Simulated scan of single mutants.
Amino acid sequence: MSDSPIAPIQRVTVLGSGVLGSQIAFQAAFHGFDVTAYDVSDDAVAAAGPRFEQLVGVYEHDRVKGSENGGARAALDRIRLTADLGDAVREADLVIEAVPESLDIKRDLYEKLAGVAPEHTIFATNSSTLLPSDLKSFTGRPTRFLALHYANHVWQQNTAEVMGTTDTDPAVYEAVVDFARRSGLEPIEIKKEKAGYVLNSLLVPLLNAAAGLLLEGVADPATVDKTWRIGTGAPLGPFQIFDVIGLTTAYNVSVASPDEGSQYFAAYLKENYIDKGKLGTATGEGFYVY
């Protein structure tokens, strides 16, 4: 494993242009990085355009710091969209994978990515449930692979959890920490692999407890959320957080869990929300109407 310096990251590719993928791409572009946003089809790429346009308004409304790079409108000029994987990564210094939380989907993507990315390119997964060790054998470059985990609403909740494997080159790890800091994030350096990192190790038990209260008929979502907000001073309750995260993500995580309660919650979400197109804040309705 080499400790040799690695050139600072400048060209970034984000794989997946959904709710969080688009935020990851826009945050980097807003802070002056050259960004390519990739998705699997022309339709998916076309759907990303309005998300980026919406983020311009959000960044301007929230007065996000970063005007030295021309502001939110200028960030759009630094984002290139494509549905061609080889084209997306041909000059990338860093590729950030933000595709659905499915081992099969990620395996297929990394195996393709390994064949088209330049040798110098660093791969990072944004997975919130899979460890980088679960994926490293698919990448073809375990020394240049780690996890870089973003929180939703990245311009406000601007943590970047950095977690390597026993194979990750320390110089690669430091280059990604440096990238996170230069893209307006607060790097959270994790010393060893841990499912859930720091943030989700704290958050997931809260969300699971809330789901249990709902499924057991103890309290409805509004009551649970009100209790949590009043009792702790938190700005959002757990079901509001579910809506922000997205109910599709909550469903995928629940389905992948061996816990019986999680399976019940997945079925509940599918029947009452997902099958009805109520996916959270992104669609204007989830547990709440927005």
Rank of each mutant, 00 (worst) to 15 (best):
L202W: 13
E174K: 00
P170H: 04
M163P: 07
V177G: 00
K194W: 06
N200E: 09
A219Y: 10
K192E: 01
D169P: 05
E216I: 09
P187W: 02
L213P: 05
A219R: 11
A210L: 08
I190E: 03
V218P: 10
K192L: 02
N208P: 09
R181M: 00
E174F: 00
I188F: 01
P170V: 02
Y197L: 14
L199G: 11
L213S: 09
V198K: 06
G217A: 05
P221V: 13
G164Y: 03
A171L: 07
E216F: 13
V204Y: 15
T168L: 14
T165K: 00
G217V: 05
V198R: 09
F179A: 01
D178N: 06
A211Q: 10
M163N: 05
L213V: 10
G196L: 08
D167H: 14
L206R: 09
E193M: 09
M163I: 07
L203S: 07
R182H: 12
P205Q: 11
V218G: 07
E174P: 01
L202A: 13
L202I: 15
L185T: 03
F179Y: 10
T165E: 00
A219P: 07
E186P: 03
L214G: 10
G164A: 05
N200I: 13
V177F: 00
S183I: 05
A219C: 08
Y197S: 08
A210C: 06
N208A: 14
M163K: 08
K192S: 02
V204M: 15
E216K: 13
E186A: 09
E193W: 12
D169F: 03
A180L: 11
A209S: 14
A211I: 12
G212S: 12
V218W: 10
I188W: 00
S201E: 14
L185E: 02
L206G: 11
D220I: 13
E174D: 08
R181Y: 00
E216P: 08
L214F: 07
V177T: 01
Y173F: 14
D167V: 06
I190R: 03
P221Q: 14
E193Y: 10
D220N: 15
A180T: 08
P170S: 04
P221K: 12
L215F: 06
L215I: 05
L213Y: 09
I188T: 02
V162D: 01
E189D: 06
D167I: 08
G164F: 03
S183A: 14
A210Q: 04
Y197K: 12
P170T: 02
L199W: 10
F179E: 01
N208I: 09
P170R: 04
A209M: 14
L203M: 10
D178F: 01
G184S: 06
A219H: 11
A180R: 08
S201F: 14
A180S: 13
A175C: 04
E189M: 07
Y197R: 13
K191A: 11
D169M: 06
